[in-house]
Design a protein around this nucleic acid. Structure first.
Lengths: 213, 213
DNA sequence: AGGGATTCGGAGGCTACCCTCCGAATGTTA
DNA sequence: TAACATTCGGAGGGTAGCCTCCGAATCCCT
């Protein structure tokens, strides 16, 4: 993730421009959209695209890194929530909104995992997620049978609504409200069926790896 | 949807083979996967592909029609449920499972909508969905503030987990259980925020059309 | 079994997109 | 402002994938 920054202003400007347009383009047409089109939208020659990102994968990697950075910045805000339940609400709300605005991210993550099969994301994120869940369950607000992986999958689900393009933006908060109501601890919840995935399985799955056994 | 069936057995066999492989291929690599690859997998010449499906869009249309047929076949089973709540459970469970097995469908639907911008799906499906919701709300088991469109969006969300490939199949039933618990009528549910989309808006949205005003 | 219609297969022309290359243009530094 | 380094732009060769075309193979019908 060592990004070399040029000293020339036009170079920096074009780099940013390309990244911004790439986000838009990939959101609309997927991460295999033609790079010539990217050059057009950024009002830049094809050569410029390939100087900044020698290969499409380099571009994808940069979007990935930027995403991981975003994630880290969320954790800071969430641990400061006043109650465990509020932390849960914030987690689902912030991450879903973030994912919905970046519908290209799931594909980007899968691609990066194909490129670097041994890549493992920071265990810190796992620890953070487990902490949020433990806190809310300890205070009795979150149903005891969900795990942090269950919540991550729910975020993925909500985030998938980004495929609809941002035009109807806030509609998904209704679905979020349903999910949150389903997550509250109650005397009469039916136990979640089956076994939860562990963190490693979740990671493999969201990168389309096959189960080991 | 008038499908002309050849009288020759090899032609029918190849047609089925191609459809089956197309589902697999599109599930893995998206609906823009190379058709030469389809020919290889179906162990068939490239010419055969293009005779059966003169264009990629023809193939996509056939997958779409097949999907709509599936949908209709579900409604019959669901209206026979013993209680309104069971109908809701069946609806979410059956449709989600079905979507998860066919991860190419959302892309197929969007593509068909691009090809036929004036296409409107049967109002019968809307009537069916409204009926299921009304029944469950009348018996007091389903929270009164959800609409059939809200449920359809929830199905889409659950169905999006098909992007993970079928390897971890049953894991998503945990998320389904959370959603169902969130849908039960209770004294203390927080009202769903904002206004629900109407059926037309939902249809436009799931086909990536922009809102009119 | 034989004839005729239909379908099959895959070689090959035709894009659309990828990516390089180098003269022109721009930024930086002193 | 001058001189040099860096970046820009887009023309163009290379290629993967699209789709056609027609001789060969298969099937249906009597």
């Amino acid at each position: 993730m060592t990004t070399t920054v040029s000293s020339r202003r036009d170079a920096r400007r074009n780099h940013e421009r390309l990244l911004a347009e790439a986000r838009r383009l990939f959101a609309e047409r997927g991460i295999d959209a033609p790079l010539d089109e990217l050059a057009n939208r950024a009002e830049v020659g094809a050569g410029t695209v390939y100087r900044h990102f020698p290969t499409r994968d380099a571009l994808i990697r940069e979007l990935y890194d930027s995403g991981v950075n975003d994630l880290r910045s969320f954790t800071a805000e969430i641990v400061e929530a006043e109650s465990g339940w509020q932390a849960i609400e914030m987690w689902l709300e912030r991450l879903s909104a973030w994912l919905i605005e970046r519908p290209y991210l799931p594909a980007v993550m899968r691609r990066v995992a194909e490129l670097d099969p041994d890549h493992r994301p920071g265990a810190e994120l796992q620890a953070f997620a487990d902490g949020v869940v433990a806190r809310a369950q300890a205070e009795g607000s979150l149903r005891p049978d969900v795990t942090s992986v269950d919540l991550s999958v729910l975020v993925d689900m909500l985030g998938s609504l980004g495929q609809y393009g941002g035009a109807y933006v806030p509609f998904w908060r209704r679905q979020l409200a349903v999910v949150l109501d389903g997550l509250r601890a109650r005397p009469d919840t039916t136990d979640l069926p089956g076994a939860a995935l562990d963190f490693q399985e979740f990671h493999d799955m969201s990168h389309r790896k096959l189960p080991e056994d």
